[in-house]
Design a protein around this nucleic acid. Structure first.
Lengths: 150, 150
DNA sequence: TAAAAAACCTAGTACCTTACTCGGGAATTG
DNA sequence: CAATTCCCGAGTAAGGTACTAGGTTTTTTA
């Protein structure tokens, strides 16, 4: 499990895509408005998202990116997993078959975090926009519920 | 929100401390057995944990580290927050008063992850270990100190 | 009281990741 | 054809991770 700034960019970009693209693809230049990163870097992030089949790219004028699946079938865990380095680097050496108990427990925890994130759909995030806006303007009347995964 | 290898080390080390220290402090050298990092680096991590009042250090022979509070009063969020860089870097400039919707949603999500981790106590993690299973694989942790066994 | 054990501290460093820059293709549209 | 956009690769600077090395201080114990 690993969450960094890259995750933030990716999730935010996917939200943007969900918000802006109803049927037409969205060009990265338009996604860029909301982010403080370069086009090339955003391209690299989308390259990962595409690799993981979360988005599809359409070339040429009026091209751009589009969600490859409905937002209901995309979870936050999917997005983070796509951009955070999933390759062998995370668990390199690990020659010994037996791991320490502490690390086993960490792995459990890590799995739990992942399950938690896997329970949050992109569509859910998109659905919060109005609520968020409302909460920002009327903080006294609203609080986010702390949902707890079982 | 940010979770990296450092978090893993820190959580695993705290688990070790919880498992090994019943009343005596545990020397970092003994914590080290289960980790694949250097003593100095582990010291640096414990420096952070101490700063955050999660552990206390006892100097001198038979010294070591001990949980500063009962494991019931320490959460995973506490541990990760202690070692992951808490300084200004996370939310730097932020010149503009208004943030993009996508980033606001990310912040909500980030808060949710934090709440989730804040709901997991160290004692809970410790409780997940089957103590006999642990003893089978790590018998030396249940013996008196090797250097002065008696 | 001397020696050893351990935390504690500081500084430097190799490597990896992040984020960027540049320079191009390749596909599609009008 | 020309513009637009994705796509791809290579190189790079800054910063963080993790390590290395060397100390100092405190405390125990012989």
């Amino acid at each position: 499990m690993r969450i960094s700034a890259k995750s933030r960019h990716a999730v935010a970009a996917m939200i943007d895509l969900g918000l802006k693209s109803q049927q037409r693809p969205v060009a990265l230049v338009d996604v860029l408005d909301d982010h403080d990163i370069s086009l090339s870097y955003l391209e690299q992030i989308f390259s990962r998202l595409k690799e993981s089949k979360l988005v599809e790219g359409i070339r040429g004028p009026r091209g751009g990116y589009r969600l490859a699946r409905p937002a209901e079938e995309i979870t936050v865990a999917d997005i983070i997993g796509a951009v955070e380095d999933t390759s062998a680097r995370g668990r390199k050496g690990r020659v010994t078959g037996r791991q320490s108990v502490a690390h086993e427990l960490w792995d459990d925890l890590s799995q739990q975090i992942n399950d938690f994130l896997d329970g949050i759909k992109l569509s859910e995030l998109l659905g919060r926009t109005n609520i968020t806006e409302f909460a920002r303007r009327h903080p006294r009347h609203f609080q986010f519920d702390k949902r707890r995964a079982a």
